[in-house]
Each structure stands twice: as C-alpha cells, then as structure tokens.
Design a protein around this nucleic acid. Structure first.
Lengths: 344, 344
DNA sequence: TTGTACGCGTTATCAG
DNA sequence: CTGATAACGCGTACAA
C-alpha cells in the first residue's frame, strides 16, 4: 500500500529537464555531457533516491552482475577464507557473489549446469573438487560462461586458475619430519575426490624415497578432511605395532583429530608423537600445542582467481591475452607439534 | 564467436507451434493448458535447452529472486552455520543467496542502504549486530524491503525474528559452575557492539546474585569474540590475585583462548581452572579437553528466519498473519572443561 | 552535446 | 483454452 514505486530513469529525466538518455549517460559516466547538466542530473538522482534497476540493465546488456562460487562441503575454515578473498576483490565492483554449495559435482553434473544456467550467472569461481571436473568445464565453455579455477591439479592451460604446489609442500613437510629424525611416518590422506589428496601423498612419498625410507601401505590411512574421519584414521595408525613416531595429516582438522587420538592413548605431542597439518587454518592456532603446518594461501588464491575472472569479464570477448595458471607460494610453519622422536 | 545465443520463449513457442504466452503459462505452471499442448511445449523446451531469462522475469515482476545475508565480521564458524541454515531452506526455491559482509553497520548506515538498494535484493536476512540496528530497519521499511532478523535483543514485535534466550542460557552456564562449587568466577564479554554480550552478562550476574556471590568488576574483561582478544582477556583474569577458579567466556573462540592462557601459566583444565564457552561451534569439540558450552542453534535459527522471509515474500503484500518473534531452545552441554574447584 | 525510436525477454490484460 | 498487444526500465543506433 504505502510502498511508493521506485524512481525510474524517466522520473529523473523529468525532474532534471533532460531526456532519459542523458540521465543514462550520466549514470554510466559517458562523455559528452555538460558539467551543468551533469550536476542537475545528479541532484535529481539524489532527490529521488534513484538507483538504476539492475534487472532492466541486465536485460539490455545481457549481464546479471552475479558471480557464483561453487564449492562442495569442505571444512568451514576453508569456505570462509575462500569467500573472504573473493569478496575482498569484489569490493567496490558492481558484481555480487552468489554462494552455490553443491552436494557432489561428479554425481549430478547436469543438475549443476542447470543450476548455473537458471541462476543467470555472469561467471563462476570453481573451488575443489569442482575445479578438476572436466565435464563441468566443457559444459561451461559450451554455454559461454567464463570461469576461473582454484587449486586445480589437472587439465591446466584451459583458462585462468590459481593454485599452490601441493607436491612440493607435502615434500617439505615430510622433509621437516625426516630432518628431526623420524623414520616411522604415518600419513592421513584427505578426501579421495579431491585431487590434492593424491598430490600431497606423492610429495610425501618423494621425500621418503629421497631419504631411503620405505613407506608401508599400513602407514597410509584415508580420511575425508573432517575431524571425525581424522579421528578414526589416527586411531588406526596409533594402534599399529610399532606405531608411527610422526603423523602427517593432509589438513588441520585431521591433524587436530590426530592430537585428540594421541591423548586418548596417553601420548604426548610432540614428545611421543609429532603431528603436521596442512592449511594453516584457524584451528591450527587454537589447538594445543599449536600445529606445525603448511600455510596454504586460500584467501589470496580466491582473491587472485576473482581478479582474473573480472579481467575476463571486462575485456571484450575474444580479446585480451589469455590468462594462464598462476601458482602462489606456500610456507612451512614450524610450531610446537613437531619434535625429534624419543630414543627407542 | 561461437557463443550461440540462448533460446528465448519465442523460439520455444515457434518450435511448439503455440504463442509465447502459452509457453509462459507452461513454464509457470498456470492452469488452463491442455495436456497435449503442455507436452509439446515441454519437448521444445528440452530440445532448445530453454531456461527463462531471470532478468526479463525480474523486470516485469519486479523481483530479483535474490536474498541478501548481512553480517559483520563474526567468527568463521558462526558465518558458516548461518549460511548453511539459510541455504538449506533455499534449496529447491528459486531464490539465491547473496552474501553481504559489512564493515560496520553503525558507522556507515547510508552506505549499507545504498548497497542493499543497488544490489536489487528482494529481501534481507539480518545477522547480529545489524539485527539490532533501528536505523537500518527503518530504512528497509521505508524502501519496502522485507527483512527477518537473527538474534535481535531489542525492538521486538517489529517483524519476523528468530533468537534464543541469551539471558537464561548464560544464567544456566553460571549456575552449572556455582553448583560445582565455584565462587570466584571470571567473565570474558564479547564484542560490545553485539547486544548479546550484555544479555549474557546479565544472565551471569543474575545467577551470581541468586547464589549470593558478589561479582567484582575486575572479574569482568571484554573481548571481541575472537581468539586473540580472548587470549588477552584471559591472561588478565589469570593474573589476578587470587585468580578465578572458573571462567565463563561468551563464545567458544574466547573459551579456547582461555584454555591456551591457562596452559601458559601451567594451569590444567579443568583441575585448576574450569572453562565454559558459548555456541557449541566446531572449535568446542576440537580443543582438549572438549568444552562445556551452550549450544546456540545458529543453523536452525537461520533456517527458520529464511523460512519466515519466504513466507512474507510469497504472501500478497499486506496479507497474511503478521510473523512474530520466535525463540529457539538452547542447551547446556556439559563436557570435560568444567569440574569442581580444588580445595584452597 | 542532446534527444528519438526501438528492442532486450518476459508477463499481464483482455479479447477471441 | 489460447493468442495479440502493451508494458517493465534501460541502453544502442542513429538523428538532430
């Protein structure tokens, strides 16, 4: 009832005594408008509290100014950093971020495509494991929807992406343990549907091989990047005879679970068991002792990926240099969860 | 170049040999369409991979099918649960969620209003502390943008909201400590700009008053709901002489920090110091010992708030029963961070 | 420098 | 039950 209709460009034009087109020019900062007119229009806009109707703009420009963020039930800290980075880059831009968590990219590919199409997105940011899904990328290319990928491990050279070197990072983490004197090193892998899990395992194995340490299969357990899955995996590793003197978990949540499992058995970290995590998420600083971990610059990766996406969106189609695969630096953060093993 | 234009309603109409309006009827499940025609249209839609253009729909219906979520730098676990609840309710609906983290609601009210208007949202979900901001609510009402509030503490009866009883919850937590025999109880308040911080303090003081325990001002420290702020506050409390035997932190992040501060001083939890948190966030289960805490049903609150918002959006304006202020139950979860105080 | 006519894709109105 | 026509608010192409 009381809901007064929003002012349109015509209302502004009438008030400023110009044509609608001129208002449009002012709104979009187009040249060829006298300062005097510009001022008049601005005043009218303010008086009427005018805001362009995005739907109408989108209709003629075929743009929605919406960018989707696709991710699949990762750890909370990961999602938050992802969003933080993406949103930071979007600050001051006209684009808005639509969050699109999906159940399982591999299971229902068409559903996801339908979702993206009906959501009328201008572009999407693909977080793992969607960022490694060839079918999804093909579909996106077919419908002409630009995308940028975060932490892809395969199919590089197919458009903008931002990643870190998971292999090298895992290798460094393992080398740290080896340098401390550890020989019996257990590994808790992450979700098998994330290719990063394999990459990190490869890095670990390379470090062990270089040191001439055989890695027995019973020293490798698989988790799902969650605390609970890590707990189960850690319990199994600690039940081995002899148990590992160090455990390398592929993310911080599972590393925290490993510390909890150690406590269950009366083991002290790091005296009886060294633990290394991955990600440098909040959790790594909250647990005791603070976790030695690999800093994965998730926020920066999201920022950079969004930056590349905006580049694509703003350059004329077919124009501009092809954006490639960017790699950001990681860092081994040695804190207090690792120490030399006890003498046997 | 190759980017084929999307099929429009007219293309479908041509293929199905009907008028555009009929296709529209089928798309929107309107009555008065023969089954035969309906089938023909559906076939054409599938063949052309037709998806309605949301911008065009939005233009004539003056709807964007976008719902905003406004929040202000809260803890990661809180944001994630908030989004989870909101998105779960949105599942299967046409509406999409746009995330709108803001710097400070109080500082730049007009900026936020401008943001909401230009973002062309159909409605917004207000999380604390925006949910307590009278000016913001007034503005939203003026531009006719429906909103629902999460955890408001003031200005009730002004539209749909979902909350829990912070006063009663804090009181229960304090009573638990008192029942264990604690008399020297420290409090770490949350961000002063969140009204919940005051409510929780009131509850704590009520419990203490009932037990005839005086609460000295030096036993109250203020934090910002973050781990780091909690660390500083906890250090000050533990430096008191005599120090508290129990500390009640107003969220789990600060409670975890309290445990870390205790360790710094060689104190054991819960033998030397009992710690109670608030929220039952992931962090409460990850730390050791697991935190005694108040379960705040954030996800359910967001779900319910979104549900009410959709009700408003779907009912004709001015019609339908006024939606009120809903209160969800909290729960004291007694875990292992609380125990009777040592005999002095 | 400014204005006019038209179209973007969809739905509402009202006629058939 | 179905279809023609006119909006919705804005930008493009072109003219003045």
């Amino acid at each position: 009832m009381r809901k007064t209709k929003r002012a349109t460009i015509v209302d502004v034009a009438r008030m400023a005594e110009v044509s609608a087109k001129t208002v449009s020019r002012v709104v979009n900062n187009e040249p060829h408008v006298t300062e005097a007119v510009k001022t008049r229009v601005h005043e009218a806009m303010r008086a009427l509290r005018y805001h362009p109707n995005v739907a109408a703009q989108g209709l003629v420009r075929s743009r929605s100014y919406l960018i989707g963020l696709v991710y699949e039930k990762p750890s909370p800290s990961y999602v938050v950093e992802l969003q933080k980075g993406a949103l930071e880059r979007l600050h001051g831009e006209r684009f808005r971020l639509v969050v699109l968590p999906v159940e399982s990219v591999t299971e229902r590919e068409d559903e996801i495509i339908a979702l993206l199409r009906s959501a009328a997105l201008d572009a999407v940011l693909l977080a793992p494991p969607a960022s490694d899904h060839a079918g999804l990328m093909a579909e996106l290319r077919e419908v002409g929807m630009p995308f940028a990928r975060i932490s892809p491990t395969r199919l590089l050279g197919q458009g903008p992406s931002v990643a870190m070197d998971d292999v090298a990072a895992a290798q460094e983490a393992a080398e740290h343990l080896i340098a401390l004197g550890h020989r019996r090193i257990g590994v808790i892998k992450g979700d098998p549907s994330h290719a990063a899990a394999d990459a990190r395992l490869v890095g670990t194995m390379q470090a062990l091989a270089k040191a001439g340490i055989p890695l027995r299969t019973e020293m490798i357990e698989s988790g799902l990047f969650t605390f609970d899955s890590g707990l189960i995996a850690a319990r199994r590793l600690l039940a081995l005879d002899p148990p590992p003197t160090a455990i390398l978990a592929q993310n911080d949540d599972m590393a925290a679970a490993t510390m909890a499992a150690a406590r269950e058995r009366g083991l002290h970290v790091p005296e009886d068991l060294s633990v290394v995590g991955f990600d440098d998420s909040d959790i790594s600083r909250v647990v005791w002792p603070p976790l030695t971990t690999i800093r994965q610059p998730v926020e920066e990766m999201a920022y950079k990926a969004m930056d590349m996406l905006l580049h694509v969106l703003k350059s004329e189609p077919g124009q501009g240099p092809e954006l490639g695969d960017v790699q950001l630096a990681h860092e081994l953060l040695i804190r207090r969860s690792t120490a030399p093993p006890k003498a046997d």
